[in-house]
Write a protein that binds this DNA or RNA. Structure first.
Lengths: 205, 205
DNA sequence: GTCTATACTACGATAGAC
DNA sequence: GTCTATCGTAGTATAGAC
């Protein structure tokens, strides 16, 4: 399937060089096909870009779906159960940020965060919305003392701890003194993230 | 000073489109000068890129310098004082992430985080190193129960909460239901960030 | 110092062979 | 469906006028 290879290559190249910076010639060459295949399959550069966003949303939804569904049911029991379910969602998200396969996706998404286009809409509706809604519901149950806007602020800041594992990868490695996030570093960071989050979520009002 | 205008424009354009995506013709035009001025002042596109990194490091150092110096001395008194000094550093960083002037800088830096070049070295040595060293010293004093690597992991995750205010700006706005981080939203986020960080830093071993 | 003019390369889109 | 060929545009670098 040439169009699949084109999509994966496109996500990588758009993530690296941005929409303007990426070259359809290069994407086609890396996909071992002719440039005009892009016109045929996706209608052009812009069509390829939007298709890439949809593909990312599908992949992320497939990965996060099970953890989200499990957390939604597990978190109904009590305030403590909600906090624990939240830790699972956050850890699942952090794991995705760390795993090498997410590199191209994360870069693509981060670009859209800065200058949102139609692709951001597709990404948000396709993958972020369900994650955030589940997260906010659980967070409100874990911290019933907080107002709605405070719960929202707390939640997005908690996500920030996971996001820096991608967005600030070079700095993370510098601080830890490693050249990449290997298994021991991953375990350390995830454990500390859980500890931080648990501390915040279980604070007595 | 044409070279100054060129630098500011370059940071903006490189941040938006990346090194390959940005055009020296466009940078020159937006700076109201000829493209060959870039060759004259910076030797070419790459020289301009490195000079832009140096300029960012200088600006950030100038902004964060006072808060860092104040925190270093204030944090020596006790464990609680170290935690409070840390909150000041983190809040100063968060404020910088939120203020509109940091937008171009942050985009430039985030690109370098993904694929570090020589410019990342200059950025790290020029601005991040002193911030991180101060932060780690204070964090170690605030949490003497943690091992060195745990302190480092905790610190970088704390920074993540501030960084998402830039790196995930579009998502932050979505979750809060605003189109930009205005003064009320800024106050809410910074207050919650301080509350989160204080909770983590003052946790009893 | 700053400009114009020019050389050379690479871009995206598209038409048409197979 | 996938290829080659080609068009018009835009990129960087550089030489030389002023």
């Amino acid at each position: 399937m040439v169009s699949r290879v084109l999509l994966d290559t496109a996500i990588d190249q758009f993530g690296r060089f941005g929409f303007e910076g990426a070259s359809t010639r290069e994407i086609a060459k890396l996909s071992s096909t002719a440039m005009s295949s892009i016109t045929y399959h996706f209608g052009g550069k812009e069509g390829l870009y939007l298709a890439a966003a949809d593909h990312i949303a599908e992949c992320v939804s497939a990965i996060q779906g099970p953890a989200l569904a499990a957390a939604r049911t597990a978190g109904e029991a009590s305030r403590e159960a909600a906090a624990q379910a939240l830790l699972l969602v956050l850890d699942s998200f952090a794991q995705m940020m760390i795993r090498p396969e997410s590199e191209p996706w994360a870069r693509f998404i981060m670009r859209e965060q800065q200058f949102p286009t139609e692709a951001f809409e597709r990404l948000y509706e396709g993958m972020m919305k369900s994650v955030m809604e589940t997260f906010l519901t659980l967070a409100a149950r874990a911290r019933p003392d907080l107002a709605d806007q405070d719960v929202r602020a707390m939640s997005i800041l908690l996500f920030g701890q996971a996001m820096i594992l991608r967005a600030g990868l070079a700095s993370v490695c510098r601080v830890l003194g490693t050249d990449q996030i290997d298994e021991p570093a991953s375990a350390l960071l995830r454990a500390r993230l859980r500890a931080n989050a648990l501390c915040i979520l279980s604070e007595k009002p």
